[in-house]
Amino acid sequence: MVTLSEPLPYEKITENLSKDDKIALISCNSCVRFCNSGGVKHMNDLASKLRADGYTVTDVIPTVGLCVHDYVRNARVSEGITAVIVSACIAGWTSASRRWRDIKVIPTVETFGIVIADKRVGNMKLMMAFDKYKDLVGQEWQLMTGERQKEQKIPVPIPEGH
């Protein structure tokens, strides 16, 4: 499974955009899809909403995973883009930022840490987190919907120090 993330509000994504921007959207379709925080469907929905709100979206690029930088490096985008919106975890955001150094690279999710999953119960469990989310270690989210769960169903204990 790898990373756990939740989507940022639309207003957070657009706060650094202007109607003059030429915007490319690029998407991972792995961890963020399992978390329902991103992925191709989210990217297409976001592109539609941005266009409806008067933004100029020039490119919509699905990839398998942005944490493989070759997919990012080889992605074809229009000349003159001024912003890239990244539907991926923070590792994907670093990968996109590595390519597009001189323009805005805007995240669409908040990444909490890394998880295990169990398809039998349909949940993911946060095992190791970035400091900001340490208090959520041990909590579970539903696979594919990304909904936080009140009941914990994955019995794997959290080791000391995680």
């Binding site: 944490c67 493989v68 930088h69 923070i90 590792a91 670093t94 890394i114």
Partner: peptide, 19 residues
């Protein structure tokens, strides 16, 4: 395990978001 990162065929695996 020390964080998450990015693989590329020219640089190999690199750590970009460390714990």
């Amino acid at each position: 395990t020390v964080g998450i990162g990015v693989f590329s065929t020219d640089k190999g695996m690199t750590l970009t978001v460390p714990f």
